[in-house]
């Protein structure tokens, strides 16, 4: 059974003028366990909305999203929160680290709402991404590249089955972007998590064996 199955997924936004704008219309999409897929698309085509729907941050208008055998679209909001906390990791373009917390605490926060805090594993992950000597640093004391690596460690902290990455290297320069995406892929592989990346960056997409145009997936 695929890890992620999406069927007839639709989502529309109400514009300020009151008209409906359909942004997602995906008849079918699926991902196998451990797969690493990249979706290519420019800005404003609904990539982030797509990932937010899979993560359950947004509710769908219609259609089905099944993650690890659980139908995300049939769950209440708190049910979606629970499923996200236990099965899905998320790497944001802006990293979304909490500024008042250290690197280690940020990673531990990623565990708090899911399977529980495992400080040893959090430390291991930070060492793995090369930040063993920066665990007590706050985001403002870290470089952009280091912040991105904390975000990667946090995304897999809860041992998710699926990691969603939204322009994960968007804030990095060319050199760091390549190294970062390689790290994301390695870490996901080591932790048996599938990786679904959306990006507009050809360099990032070039590192994946398979990069699909988001427009082919999304008919909206």
């Amino acid at each position: 059974m695929p890890l992620l199955t999406i069927t007839d997924l639709q989502k529309a936004y109400i514009s300020p003028e009151g008209s409906q704008t359909r942004i997602i219309d995906i008849p079918h999409f699926e991902m196998e366990e451990g797969a690493q897929i990249a979706l290519r698309g420019g800005s404003g085509v609904g990539k982030t909305t797509f990932l937010n729907l899979i993560a359950g941050i947004l509710g769908a208008d219609s259609g089905r999203i099944v993650v690890s055998g659980e139908e995300m679209t049939a769950l209440s909001e708190s049910g979606r929160d629970r499923l996200r906390a236990s099965h899905i990791g998320y790497i944001f373009q802006t990293f979304n680290l909490l500024p008042g917390y250290t690197a280690l605490e940020n990673v531990m926060l990623g565990m708090m709402f899911g399977k529980g805090i495992d400080a040893g594993f959090a430390q291991h992950l930070l060492e793995r991404v090369g930040l063993g000597d920066r665990m007590g640093y706050r985001p403002s004391q870290l470089s952009v590249g280091q912040q991105q690596r904390v975000a990667v460690a946090r995304a897999v902290a809860n041992r998710p089955r699926l990691v969603l990455a939204d322009e994960p290297t968007g804030n990095l320069d060319y050199h760091h972007a390549n190294a970062a995406i390689a790290l994301v892929r390695e870490i996901c592989g080591e932790n048996n998590a599938a990786l679904l990346t959306v990006s507009h960056d050809a360099e990032v997409l070039g590192q994946f064996e398979e990069a699909t145009d988001f427009a082919q997936v999304n008919r909206a």
Binding site: A55, I57, E77, S78, D81, R82, R84, A85, S86, Y90, F92, N96, L97, L98, G100, L109, G110, M112, F113, G114, R154, N158
Partner: peptide, 16 residues
């Protein structure tokens, strides 16, 4: 607000 949104994205429920 952003802090709460991040916590929610990490799986925190509204009631949390």
């Amino acid at each position: 607000r952003r802090e709460f949104a991040i916590l929610r994205a990490l799986g925190a429920r509204r009631k949390t």
